[in-house]
Amino acid sequence: MRKTFPVITVLLVITAIWYLGSWRMNTPWALQQAARAEQTLTTGELFKATMQQDRPRLPAPHQVVSELWKSTGAMVQRGKAFSKRSLIYHGAITLGSTLTGFALGVFIGILGAVAITYSRVMEMSLMPWAIVSQTIPIVALAPMIIVLSNAVGIESRAVPKAIISAYLCYFPVLVGMVKGLNSPGTEQLDLLKTYNAGVAASFFKLRLPASMPYLFTSLKIAIAAALVGTIVGELPTGAISGLGARILIGDQFGTPLAIWAALFAAAILAGVLVTLLGLAQGLVLKRMGMAR
């Protein structure tokens, strides 16, 4: 309670500021409408008018929540949970590529970390480029990757999206695992040497378990990055399914409510994924006796 109270307060303040913003930003249009209908609005009426526009400049929070409900919960009640107008359907598409890209990125990251830990050539050649790769605005490549994978005959958009996700999320895993695999001290490594333990034994009995706390910390960063990658992959030209595509379509059809609902859905998805990984982290580290 002592921890959540400040957070809740901050969230309430943000909501209040948001309402204030909606009121201010939607006022001109409401006044314009009233003038056209040759009405004069009292302050109360004006405020009400700013809170229920169909195409507001800044929708009020309750409008976003109700739009979110309309495109998720309400669709479930009507048995259309996976219709193409439901955010559950689009969320599932996004989740699919996120997880694919995440798995790919984690695999590459761990593989790279092992190579860097055991091979000095790899460390010297790869590490600088891994850092450089993160300073490149990969999204500039997103339309390119889509063209490229189309050209080599991959029709599905899931593959290019997953590639972008993997590109964004391999780096934290690589860095975290290099740190983790090298976290055992010289004494611990020397102890294994006195047992005449081989490379495999020292890897599986010491380095890998020791790296687990580092792994989970970077996984949480990586899954969020993977989601960003997928959504960015869905943004440019022509996508029709996925949360990113909903944002794009909402922009093209001028329906801000749809954009905001998709943004909220993405935020919720990110929250759920990070929370799940946090739970897994707690469970695994507890089993391994590493929980703090």
């Binding site: 400040p6 957070v7 809740i8 307060t9 901050v10 969230l11 943000i14 999204v139 960063i221 969020a224 989601l227 960003v228 959504i231 960015v232 943004l235 949360l243 990113g244 944002i247 794009l248 909402g250 922009d251 954009i259 998709a262 943004l263 993405a266 935020a267 990110a270 929250g271 990070v274």
Partner: peptide, 19 residues
Amino acid sequence: GLLPVGNFVAALPIIGIAP
């Protein structure tokens, strides 16, 4: 109050507000 909220928002695909 702001640190956890900020940490969460920093991990979101904020790029989506571009349109």
